[in-house]
Amino acid sequence: MSDNIISIKDLRFGYGNRELHKGINMQFPRGKVSAIMGGSGSGKTTILRLIGGQIKPTAGQVSVDGTIVHQQDREGIYRLRRKMGMLFQHGALFSDLSVFENVAFPMREHTDLPENIIKDLVLLKLNAVGLRGAAYLMPTELSGGMARRVALARAIALDPDIIMYDEPFAGLDPISMAVICDLIRTLNDALGATSIIVTHDVAETFSFADYVYFIADGVVAAEGTPKQLMTSKLPFIKQFIHGEKDGPVPFHYNAPSLNSDLGL
């Protein structure tokens, strides 16, 4: 069994004529929390979609537990996805189901467990994210942070080997953010899972991630532990980590000079 549960080799992918990934290599070790960071539109979420087999690379490969994802048929991809849990940016809870039913959904779909066991398991999962008391609320009655925690309980419903988080901190208040940070680390260690977080929140991610990849211009611009990256001299990493307005990522979108646009 390889130490890396997910391996990405020479990955290339694009939408239409726009090449998003120009040869990306990444390794995600078992049991670790890894983060993929980069600016908006750099293709971070697309990497999660490639790992989940929702889209196919134009070149290179993504392998999960030794299986090359894009070579699988639908059944094969579904088998792989049963090893994965995914937290979407805004939770993606099923709006017609209660919190309880949302968490029970994967159990009902993929197991033949009796109702009393499902009930116990759902309550345990909700307890793990601190929302056992909200079991019978509807998603519309939850705050953004609560919805994210319910979605996390649903993502871990079947004790997956891999948990993927797409922008888990987006739009959260500081308390909810701290709760989610803590849950990601705690659940990863308690379940013995491997976590991949796609985010651009530096402070939160650096506080608990084991390893971080930075993507820029379609390639891995830098990688390392949070400690190594904090001291990085690379201009892009410095700009990103310290939130500088101008740098390798320019403030202005490509445009002719202001004078020519104003006819001066």
Binding site: Q54, R81, M86, F88, A92, L93, S95, E109, H110, A151
Partner: peptide
């Protein structure tokens, strides 16, 4: 359309459940 816009269909796909069947 709203299920698609709020990623509910993608979430279902990622749970290895076919949105066509469900």
């Amino acid at each position: 359309g709203l299920m698609k816009a709020t990623e509910q269909l993608s979430a279902m796909e990622m749970m290895a459940v076919s949105p066509i069947a469900r």
